[in-house]
Design a binder for these strands. Structure first.
Lengths: 353, 353
DNA sequence: TGTTAGCACTCGTTATAATGGAGTGCTAAT
DNA sequence: ATTAGCACTCCATTATAACGAGTGCTAACA
């Protein structure tokens, strides 16, 4: 099953060439391309073997060969091994990003959006990036404040510094003392509590203690519930969707429409994030070739993802989506450095909401 | 310059037909289509006139005619007059939306996104919707709370209920009294103040009073500044960009790529919002045909926009972007009813952040 | 004077055929 | 095991023809 040295070299040459040109590559091309001086006829024989083994495909008789998914897979795996720990010198674009990331005072949302845009511009592929999923599930702080005669503001802070505000309208006016009491009630009972431990009994207990202000407790608890729900929702930013038009094999109406929809709806991209986060291979980089991707609309694409991690448990995903014949080398090394940048820069004390 | 009754009828017939088919329409078709019994030859003469007047165009010598922008313009204007105050019966889709809008407890962001999606699904065009621009510029409430030994939370509420939170890290621990003092300081000085009246002198005054906690005041003021900046940034949601692939005249790579980029970047859409908000025609509905749109990448599209208004000054824009041959009638009436729904439902006490 | 039938003409679209060339597979010679 | 040579395949390109929808114009008609 193993390929001998020569076959591997030829396969590699085919793939390299195809990545550049996007055209099926013939034996004569390879015969000149490689340093092993062989005639086209010899190459033809080898190619015939490679096809039989499933590494390359002939679109039709009398055309050159193109790599199959299996071929790409071998190529990528091999590449990953060779490049191991080389961790490419920071390229120009990565330096730019680094500079950007250091500007931490910006909201994380803005940074991520900007990063997606930058990656897209630099790679000429479509990109996505998911915000770090907040695992923090302990209530850290909860407070009611009077903003207005008729309006109360609830502020809820969850571990990991997720902050949620909610306005509550009240009919009868509350005096400062009542608010203070409610605050004490809420904080003494809820502070430090894992969210899932808040149950019905506890809520009704709180309500009872709140007396005539039970209604307010209800609304506060609704807001807490909303925080949980928000936390489950994965925010995803995308950029460079238009890049798919640069690759004819993706640019026909049918495919383009599907892909654009996928990027726009983002819903389906969460599957990708999920898959990436679970299936950890050690390097934190994953390559999906063609049908391997969990998102079916991307079966004609390749996807390279990297997971990054801020504090304990806060993980996010960066993904690059391009044609099968994407420049895996460049993409992977870019992601690798970017990942390590993120990991180191954000490692200590996390971001803000 | 005015068209006689017959010419107008013919023009209308041409446009109607073209809207449906997307194909150049010939004289024979019209001869049968209309109720004025005329032979194709007569129609041909009339069409020749209409072309000379610039209302229709011949793509090439032996093809039918298609409407020019001027033709569309006449058609739309005429339609707007006829339909005036008819305010179409609520169609099925509008009813759905109505139901959705009543569900006000949702975040406005979610509602708007959902609405864009719905509109896109119902019309088969691309849609955009801008969040109501917050004009509220008075500080309503400002507060520091201790969340943690090392972290303070700033909560800022601006008129119109825009809420902003910011975490501030402190080195030396603050006791409750210090925080209380700071809060009093901030509120007595800033509450009810229009944001633009906060100047350097005032800030340095505050800092002086804060003594050793001047650094915290700085950070709070930064957060206030951020609120202003946020307010200027117009949030725009889009949906149904993929719909452009349903119209061959927009679906070629060049155009599609441009349009997709426009939708993705959203930046350029703000021009549209701006234009819509300023140029008020009374009805609140505006129609841009082809080159009339302020966004140059949409020169092959038509855009119909509606402005909606919540409280005083809080205006937003809904836009529908489709091919020149869009179903103006349906789009306009849908937007009209939707607009009035929004206007009435949200009119009293505005939404939340 | 407005309307219509008739007809030659235009021109994009579609279908069909012809040509070229890149690339293969196989065979026979080295 | 390698290679030169050659027949063969099949896509892509180009050329050619046939088609037909639609026009403009003219002449006849009410």
């Amino acid at each position: 099953m193993d390929l001998d040295e020569r076959k591997r070299k030829i396969l590699q040459a085919i793939i390299r060439n195809y990545l550049e040109t996007g055209e099926p590559v013939g034996s004569r091309t390879i015969s000149k391309y490689t340093d092993l001086n062989l005639s086209s006829a010899t190459i033809r024989n080898e190619m015939s073997d490679l096809e039989e083994l499933g590494y390359i495909i002939q679109p039709h008789t009398s055309a050159g060969r193109i790599p199959s998914d299996k071929g790409y897979r071998l190529y990528v795996d091999q590449m990953m091994i060779e490049k191991e720990e080389q961790l490419s010198q920071a390229t120009q674009e990565v330096k730019e990003m680094q500079k950007m990331l250091l500007d931490r005072e910006d909201k994380m949302e803005a940074v991520l959006k900007q990063m997606a845009r930058m990656l897209a511009a630099n790679t000429n592929y479509a990109t996505m990036i998911s915000a770090p999923q907040v695992r923090g599930n302990k209530l850290k702080f909860i407070q009611l404040s009077r903003v207005d005669t008729r309006q109360l503001l609830t502020t809820i802070v969850v571990e990991g510094n997720v902050i949620k505000n909610e306005m509550i309208s009240v009919e009868q006016m509350l005096d400062d003392e009542a608010i203070l009491k409610l605050n004490i009630l809420l904080n003494t009972n809820l502070n430090g509590l894992p969210i899932e431990e808040i149950n019905l009994a506890m809520i009704s207990n709180l309500k009872q203690q709140a007396g005539i202000h039970a209604g307010i407790i209800s609304e506060v608890m609704d807001a807490v519930a909303a925080v949980i729900k928000d936390g489950e929702h994965v925010e995803i930013y995308t950029s460079g969707a238009n890049n798919i038009f640069k690759y004819p094999e993706l640019a026909d109406n049918q495919r383009a429409s599907e892909l654009i929809t996928t990027f726009e709806e983002k819903q389906m991209l969460t599957e990708l994030v999920q898959d990436t986060l679970t299936d950890e291979t050690g390097t934190g980089i994953q390559v999906y070739i063609g049908n391997e991707t969990p998102v079916k609309t991307m079966k004609d694409c390749s996807v390279v993802t990297a997971t990054y991690e801020l504090e304990e448990g806060m993980k996010g995903t960066i993904g690059i989506i391009g044609p099968r014949r994407m420049d895996y080398d460049k993409v992977i090394s870019t992601l690798k450095t970017l990942k390590s940048q993120l990991d180191t820069i954000y490692k200590k004390d996390g971001g803000q909401t």
